[in-house]
Write a protein that binds this DNA or RNA. Structure first.
Lengths: 216, 216, 216, 216
DNA sequence: AATGAATGAGTTTTCATTCAT
DNA sequence: TATGAATGAAAACTCATTCAT
């Protein structure tokens, strides 16, 4: 009757829109709190499509998490800072990490939710298992470079350094709601956030600084 | 009128057992994932008792969270270390914080869950509102003492320092499941945990150390 | 507001009415074809009551089947025919079996349905496992008595004799619909049924008759 | 217009494979329990093919039943035993019937399922309506021949005799699952089956034997 | 303070069927 | 003929909450 047919989106279109909607809703409500109906409404499709494309609510959540971790690649690529002194590169790495977390609260919420469920939804994922966590190698190379330059101490475990950085950047976002109530200060406040960012850089660089720095 | 008397537990006994069971179940499954039936089964009582004592599932969860934060008092009291050099006291504070978090994963899970729900269940709680976060004062006093002793730098925001410490101690527990899958290392591994603990102390003390330490 | 309260039937009332409704609906539609909604409507209650009282649709069906087999007791009790010549007693046994099957088509349908599902719903039932099939003993005693009287042959397996009797009585009911279409005769036709009944008795007695009957 | 041609199976190939898969699945799960998806997966085709070739799930089931009854022809043809004494021929007829049922449990399950649904899926089928049930004529001729030979009684209704034979052969297969649980004996046990077969023959021949057999 | 049973609304999931290509 | 994707209706099941006692 009319040429403007709405049915049948392009291939993969429905799947993608479900994934996006699911990401939003899961991040907002948690796994159990999220509601399949709300997801399909937001995705402008129907419930069976979830089961057709993903198999179950659980597998849909797993797909969302894979998607979230795919985003980690993007973050990791932005970490590579070539050709600068190690200390500057490290400063940059902390700042980028800080900013990425600050800019992606959904990412953080979804990872928190995954942990509440003991990461069972990504356990056994071939995609994630085959991943080699690029951050660690970047950090590792940077540590070696800094040590060679004489600006970082030796023997730092890159995983532990990453833990120091990531925990700070993640927690200030993930736990800001309880902090606001308990400590009456909003960690997301812009002015304060800048000082937290400086602090993170400072803490990392001081931690790495050799006890007898080169006298140059 | 008839011999079949209903057994009463001691006063508050039912309430307490519901609270304990709820804590376990909410920590395990999250707010929405937790199920009122499971709670009463674990508490060896019946559903109406929840409504009698707490009013609703939401209010029960709020009560659990208050209970969790009451545990914070216990932690804070163990922080007070009198009569020692500031640096030693600070080392102690970090260690106690680290150990407390490591020993109370449920506490951490519940706080994560509260944050997923944007802390709405504790928002407006008179108990929590009236709380003056003792940690901050302890940290504050310690910072001043250390500055006076000349072993800490000036101008450190106690909230930020607490953030540095707490984020590390919290995150390594809260996010250990996803870390295990992504980085193939278990942050809870005993030997590694010791090194993380040393690192936390080290990072904090190096962060506080004055640039020109007193020549003593 | 009004004294005629309908809610809350007597204890066990809801359970019993669900069981009765389920029996009707399962017999009518088969296990998968039966619909939980229809059952609760017929039982004048609500869906959760099925899950509260029985646990699942499958367990409800299992309960129906147990109920069906409980009916077998009633049938078995009516088999005991004391103090008559063995041949007369056997005639009576066949007739009672015939009549019982003819009078309980639902019983037959439910057992057919159970067999379609390979009896998995009653497999492992403690009630049914502990049952000692009284028919077999009755038949056994009757065979011995007849042999002693010299009117039955020796060495008949009571289970096989019961198979001969039951198969005829069951099948003519269970398969009458396909027979009607294939052979254009209705096995349930009253006049014909009488002849079938006579035939069943006749076939059994002739089968049991000794080759050299006592010359009395 | 483009190289990506859809693979066509041979003519009727898809139809036949759907029919075969449907037979398997319906026999296994019953009409309602069977699932169109499972059928097409087993048939290695897609759902619309069912609707293209058969019109609906119900019509597909009807087609399966027609197919099942077509198998009856094969059975009936194997019944014709020429040129032997009537008693031997009858023995053979019972044995063939017994063996055919024993060898085709799916056939039996499908007929049971059809009866659960009151044979509505084959009601009105022109194919089946036009069928003249060959068994009955074979049995009829055999009875006449036996009577002429003086080895069978007169006046036996061939339909009733067929009922006696078929019920035994069908029921021992159709109801073996519940029998196994109730009577703790497996009617399909090979050694026992032989005795059941002998019994069937014996029961039929004794039923037919004249009261005053010819003294030959 | 306690219980067994009930309720209504909602949850995830399934299914036969059909559309566009 | 054949396919991948979509649909609408309904299926089984769950849940927080409340009633009558």
């Amino acid at each position: 009757m009319d040429g403007s047919q709405v049915r049948h989106n392009g291939p993969g279109r429905t799947r993608a829109s479900i994934l996006g909607a699911a990401r939003t809703v899961f991040a907002e409500k948690g796994y159990s709190g999220a509601n399949v109906n709300e997801i399909v409404t937001l995705a402008r499709t129907t419930k069976p499509m979830i089961y057709y494309h993903f198999g179950s609510k659980e597998l849909l959540f797993a797909a969302v998490l894979e998607d979230v971790y795919a985003g980690m690649r993007e973050y990791e690529q932005s970490l590579e800072v070539a050709g600068t002194p190690a200390a500057d590169a490290m400063r940059r790495l902390v700042e980028v990490t800080f900013d990425y977390h600050a800019a992606h609260p959904d990412w953080i919420r979804l990872i928190s939710i995954a942990n509440i469920h003991r990461a069972k939804h990504i356990d056994g994922s071939p995609t994630l298992a085959s991943r080699n966590a690029a951050v660690l190698e970047i950090v590792q190379r940077l540590l070696l470079r800094g040590a060679a330059e004489g600006v970082f101490r030796d023997g730092i475990d890159p995983l532990h350094l990453h833990l120091l950085i990531a925990s700070f950047c993640f927690y200030r976002v993930s736990n800001r709601h309880t902090w606001k109530i308990i400590f009456k200060r909003d960690l997301a406040d812009a002015a304060d956030a800048i000082r937290q960012r400086d602090m993170a850089v400072d803490a990392v660089l001081r931690y790495l600084r050799p006890d007898n720095p080169p006298a140059n």
